[in-house]
């Protein structure tokens, strides 16, 4: 893998390569360049996940001609697909080096920080929503119970905007969550459940199910579960699989004609 990166940098296939390196005892993202080619020896693959594709969009915004290589797990790859669909990254300028991730029958072994999630405390299990529940199980509660459990989770929110900030597919210049008429500034907790549901609805056809938002949430709100539910509806109703499709999601309202079409029966 190190040799591939070196080769890419030497042959000018990529101008820089985003990967990970141990620095001060922490596995941190690092930008490998041709000038510091010997650093490539320290390239590591670990459980650590940062949103490298988000960094790539920052770089691409500064210099659209830049050829960027990056270490990509499956979730990174899905996020890159979404960013490409939304014209935030040029697929010609992005080259990925795929690493082992997300276990499946074909790939039993995986390196992912999300998989080593901590045990859910009993109180949360009793009154809130267990982060590790699947969409079906979480859907199994009665409507009233769902309401109580989710409101318990939402009222913990400290409005850090971490879920939005870390999200690899959140790139809008103007964010609804910062619009003062919709989400009034300076109130804590934020208006619930609107704050979370607005974000959830915007995640429809966008969320790549990477789980970074849940990793970054200081209050342990089961955001991944919420967005999974939203995207399962997108899949059921519009037959659109986020992160795999090469077309924009069915909700793109920009353009001349309405493109919203239902899944064929």
């Amino acid at each position: 893998m190190k040799n591939t990166v070196k080769e890419w940098l030497e042959n000018g296939i990529v101008d820089l390569f985003l990967g990970y390196k141990m620095s001060n005892g922490h596995p941190l993202p690092h930008c490998f360049t041709l000038e510091e080619l010997t650093d490539v020896e320290q390239l590591i693959v670990s459980e650590t996940r940062y949103s490298l594709e988000k960094i790539a969009t920052h770089l691409a915004r500064k210099d659209p001609e830049l050829k960027i290589g990056l270490l990509a797990r499956d979730c990174n790859q899905r996020a890159i697909n979404v960013l490409t669909v939304w014209h935030q990254l040029d697929p010609e300028k992005i080259k990925t080096l795929n690493v082992n991730c997300c276990p499946s029958p074909i790939k039993p072994q995986a390196d992912c920080s999300y998989l080593s999630s901590q045990a859910v405390p009993p109180y949360k299990q009793q009154v809130g929503v267990d982060n590790t529940l699947g969409v079906e199980t979480a859907d199994g509660f009665t409507n009233q119970e769902k309401n109580i459990r989710w409101m318990y989770e939402f009222q913990k929110c400290i409005k850090c905007y971490g879920c939005r900030n870390i999200c690899p597919v959140c790139f809008c210049a103007e964010c609804t969550l910062e619009h003062k008429d919709l989400i009034s500034p300076g109130t804590l907790p934020p208006q619930i459940p609107i704050f979370h549901l607005v974000r959830a609805s915007h995640m429809a056809g966008r969320c790549v199910d990477c789980g970074l938002c849940e990793d970054a949430c200081p209050m342990d709100i089961p955001l991944r579960l919420l967005y999974s539910k939203v995207n399962s509806i997108v899949k059921d109703v519009f037959d659109y699989s986020t992160g795999e499709s090469s077309e924009q999601p069915p909700f793109s309202v920009l353009g001349e004609k309405v493109t919203l079409s239902l899944k064929p029966m």
Binding site: H26, L28, R49, I158, G162, D215, C217, P218
Partner: peptide, 15 residues
């Protein structure tokens, strides 16, 4: 970006 492996914040930050 929050530092994921930091022992104090464990990859979380406030606003």
């Amino acid at each position: 970006i929050p530092m994921k492996s930091h022992p104090v914040s464990q990859g979380k930050l406030c606003i």
